[in-house]
Design a protein around this nucleic acid. Structure first.
Lengths: 372, 372
DNA sequence: GCCGCTTATGCAATCGTTTGCATATCGGTG
DNA sequence: CACCGATATGCAAACGATTGCATAAGCGGC
């Protein structure tokens, strides 16, 4: 921290007035209390002396740190940076600053970070890292600190959120696939402990029912995490079930990329033999081979709205405003991983391989069940 | 900011001692001044009451905010998030927290943000946004606040930096290309106001001389920014010069992606007709079509070192430590955009197109010059 | 010319911790 | 038993800005 900084007193001395007068002259909200000419003179002297208010002292007195804690699972996961930009740009308009930290999806780390942020006196919390069951978040809310989750939501509807229309988006993907003529389509779902994973799964089930897809109940796999590795494994496991399908709807672009890799390993052509869709339209989703068909969510906008909501709550008296639940619309982005249903299905590509000794049993059972 | 938080006084009252005693008992550095049994009791009571020290009050008193300002051009540019993680993880070990902001490569915004950070009392500054001529940085340094630049450096050698071996890395790329038999290779350089752009350009020149490449002086183009658009335009302009080349070394992966697009527009096959290299090995560089040959820089590690360097300087007396200049080693990552030099060069792909009425003049001049 | 009212400025307390200094307590020693 | 030194705790003053209240100055009206 800088050493001999010029402070209010110094400006006051230079202007021949009391520090409190300077304070008032410099604050737009209290400037009217001071004679115009004096206020101007003080302003001039302050800028001549390069006075910069010490915001720590100010925070201590006013009990406002003008900071907002922001938690993301991992900033290197590319869907989060645009959300953060939305937050930062919006907060900046009101003089607030985000304090960003990564939880690595670890609830313990999340709780610790929330403690650190609260010790640092953040005025509010924006959480992109929320799991559906998140005691720390509920705790924070009950302690009276403004909280809003973004991109995800928690099961407790008392906390505000800004999310995307997950079920609707997944339905868009299924509609798109059905329009291409597909009837047996698989779903690689995301982690069900996250609202995104859960709602996209709901969306699939609902759309599958609506379109009366074939064997869809037996063609759902669950990924443990939203990453390429889980995508590969999940896709392989689906293939090993031995139930032929012509399209695979994944819950996330990274899962889709993993699936693309798995399909490539098995020598299955996309989209000729199997169509694939992702979700999010993350940066570079158009750079895959072939370019990924996906559903575009709103990231910057989600961050922007989350910041706005927090800002609204800061002024308001503790708990006086009802929770805000905002759902942003999404958009289908057809690219090259989806195509018309193949005329004939190459059955030999489905079923367990010798070199991947995995879940063959469930495939047998599932295969014996009828379409429903 | 939380309302009725329990403070030192509350703990003191509960323990029947003075606040200062509690303060000492809770601080590991002063704990020895307190009787063990009492210190233990205080610690217990403090945690029972869920006491969390108010770090704002602490900062005011100690004149240390335990925060480090971090400026990046744009967090959505994917090479920065890993740098930030390196910084955050390292700072956290010492109880420091980064305050991150985006400059959008705008010097005015950078200066403003530095002012804001300094008003917030950051103890040091890590800058990933530095331009070679950066008055604000020099200013900050002269004001005695610890500064280190990361990924880039400024021309004033008094400020510490952690960068990658740019000239060496570019030489690696040229060596790789030469090994594949190429003799006429172009370079799409980055902005020369950034140390990365400049040093990679130097690296190209040096390596080109060493290998006695053909016409290399006439095959250098300069991009105005490190992005895909500049890559496209720069590549097109190079093509329009009418000097056939078989390889293009770009100063950055995003420029390379733009170049790939330009080449594709012109119907030029990569790597059969022209080989391309990028620089950085940013996330998803392996997802381009074809996967991009590039030079891998160290990002997380650069962030980590930058944070370490700042931390060292915080303890030390103002300006007592000499500047640290650290250069990290880079690594060649051959992928599919580079291949053996074509047996015969298809001259028709070089020279201005009717549909792109750009820099044809310089091409004529350049074409008339001899190899040197 | 005095009263009362408005407006402009000063005073001093406060936010919660830290820390130099003063004081109390304890054990040991001559 | 008085005294000394060491050790443990308390006291109070910071850190720099904000803000309710007190006071001073200015002004109009009668």
């Amino acid at each position: 921290m800088a050493k001999g900084r010029v402070k209010l007193k110094d400006v006051a001395a230079a202007a021949g007035v009391h520090a409190s007068t300077v304070s008032r002259a410099l604050d737009p909200k209290t400037r009217h209390l001071i004679t115009d000419s004096l206020a101007e003179r003080i302003t001039r002297i302050a800028s001549e002396l390069q006075y910069r208010p010490n915001s720590i002292a100010s925070s201590l007195r006013t009990q406002q740190s003008m900071t907002i804690g922001v938690l993301v699972p991992d900033i290197t996961n590319m869907i989060f940076p645009p959300i953060l930009r939305g937050i930062e740009d919006t907060l900046a308009q009101q003089g607030y600053v985000p304090i960003i930290a990564n939880t690595d999806s670890d609830p313990v780390k999340e709780r610790t970070l929330m403690d650190i942020m609260r010790a640092r006196g953040v005025d509010g919390l924006i959480l992109a890292s929320a799991q559906r069951q998140d005691a720390a978040i509920v705790q924070a809310m009950e302690d009276g600190i403004p909280v809003v989750t973004v991109n995800r939501m928690i099961d407790d509807e008392r906390v505000s959120y800004v999310i995307n229309n997950e079920t609707g988006g997944l339905a868009l993907a299924v509609d798109h696939i059905v329009e291409l003529g597909h009837r047996t389509v698989a779903h690689l779902a995301g982690p069900q402990r996250l609202s995104t994973g859960l709602f996209r799964y709901y969306g699939f089930c609902r759309a599958a029912k609506k379109h009366r897809l074939r064997k869809w109940r037996d063609l759902i796999g669950f990924a443990g995490a939203f990453n390429e590795e889980s995508g590969r494994e999940g896709c392989l496991e689906l293939l090993d079930r031995g139930i032929p399908f012509t399209a695979l709807i994944t819950a996330n672009d990274r899962l889709a990329i993993g699936a693309l890799q798995a399909l490539s390993i098995r020598g299955i052509k996309v989209p000729e033999e199997v169509s694939v869709t992702g979700y999010n339209d993350m940066p570079f989703a158009d750079m895959t081979t072939p370019p990924l068909t996906t559903v575009r969510i709103q990231t910057y906008e989600a961050g922007r709205r989350a910041a706005e909501i927090i800002l609204e709550r800061l002024g308001a008296e503790r708990g006086t405003l009802p929770a805000v639940h905002e759902v942003l619309e999404v958009e289908m982005v057809p690219r090259q991983t989806t195509g018309p249903v193949p005329a004939t299905i190459n059955e030999t590509i489905f079923g367990p391989r010798g070199d991947t000794p995995s879940a063959g049993r469930s495939a047998d059972i599932a295969a014996s069940e009828t379409d429903r």
